[in-house]
């Protein structure tokens, strides 16, 4: 786990953990995390850039409204990280701009 995130986990109780890959870095998250929570806990880096102004974004509203948390999950672009629960082995990557028309299909 990276330590320069602005978010700190409350160390209350014990949780199952899952393994994830975020932009090629192996990490872990709580099994109950949304992908957005896992990304915020992982670090402060932008998780996408916008399509028009290439402005950096991280998850923001955490409730499916703002679409700032769009990332590519297991090769599928434009996924709302705050609406998806982490899965063991998930591969999450930064999304640069608008999605491509065709999905890479590389899992």
């Amino acid at each position: 786990m990276m330590t320069d995130s602005r978010f700190f986990r409350r160390e209350n109780g014990t949780y199952d953990t899952v393994c994830l890959q975020i932009d090629g870095v192996q990490t872990h998250a709580r099994a109950t995390d949304t992908v957005a929570a896992a990304l915020l806990a992982f670090g402060p880096a932008p998780t996408r850039t916008t399509g028009i102004s290439q402005s950096p974004r991280t998850p923001f509203c955490m409730m499916g409204a703002c679409f700032d948390c769009l990332v590519t999950i297991d090769g599928r672009p434009n996924q709302q990280a705050c609406m998806i629960t982490v899965q063991d082995g998930m591969c999450i990557t930064h999304q640069a701009g608008f999605r491509p028309l065709e999905e890479p299909h590389d899992g």
Partner: peptide
């Protein structure tokens, strides 16, 4: 649809990509 990075290589009377993508 959601905005797409690529440009569709055609305009038709039923499918067209708007300038915003």
């Amino acid at each position: 649809t959601e905005r797409i990075q690529d440009r569709l290589p055609f305009v038709s009377s039923t499918v067209r990509q708007v300038d915003e993508g």
